Amino acid sequence: MQSIVVYCGSNSGNKAVYAEAAYSVGAELAKRNIKLIYGGGNMGLMGRVADGAMENQGFVTGIIPNFLAKLENAHKTLSELHFVETMHERKAKMVAMSDGVIALPGGYGTFDELFEILTWSQLRIFNGPVGLLNVNGYYDFLLMQLDKMVEEGFLRTDNLKLLVVADEAGTLLEKMDDYRQKNPENKPLDSSLYVDNN
Rank of each mutant, 00 (worst) to 15 (best):
D177W: 01
L160N: 04
L45P: 01
E185H: 07
G153C: 02
Q2S: 09
V49F: 05
A74F: 13
E151T: 04
V25E: 06
L123P: 06
P105R: 13
L45F: 07
M97C: 14
L68S: 08
I63V: 14
V60Q: 02
G26C: 05
A92G: 11
L68K: 15
M1V: 03
L193P: 09
Y179R: 07
N186M: 04
G170A: 13
G26K: 01
A30N: 05
L68A: 04
S98E: 08
G39Y: 05
N198R: 02
K35R: 14
A22D: 02
G52A: 06
N136G: 07
L71N: 11
M176S: 06
R180C: 04
V60K: 01
R180Y: 02
F154L: 05
T77K: 15
A92H: 03
D196V: 00
G40L: 04
P105Y: 04
F111A: 01
N66D: 14
M149N: 12
D51E: 12
Q2P: 14
R48K: 15
G131S: 05
K148C: 08
K148V: 11
M144V: 10
D51P: 07
E55C: 03
K70I: 08
N73V: 03
M97G: 14
D140A: 06
K175P: 00
A74D: 14
F154Y: 12
E152A: 00
M144F: 05
G170Y: 01
N159M: 02
S191N: 14
T61G: 05
N136M: 00
D190Y: 04
L142P: 15
A69T: 08
G106Q: 09
A19C: 08
Q2N: 13
I4F: 13
R156G: 12
G39S: 07
T119Q: 10
A69M: 07
V60N: 01
E55N: 15
G106P: 15
L162Y: 02
F67R: 15
M94N: 12
E85Y: 11
Y179G: 07
T119W: 13
V25W: 09
V165L: 06
H82W: 14
V17W: 08
I117V: 13
L45H: 05
D112M: 05
Y108I: 15
N11R: 14
L173Q: 00
D140F: 04
R156P: 14
G100Q: 10
M1A: 10
E89M: 09
I34A: 01
M1L: 06
G170D: 15
A92N: 03
E168A: 12
R32G: 00
T157E: 15
G109E: 00
K93F: 13
G39I: 10
E85T: 08
S121D: 02
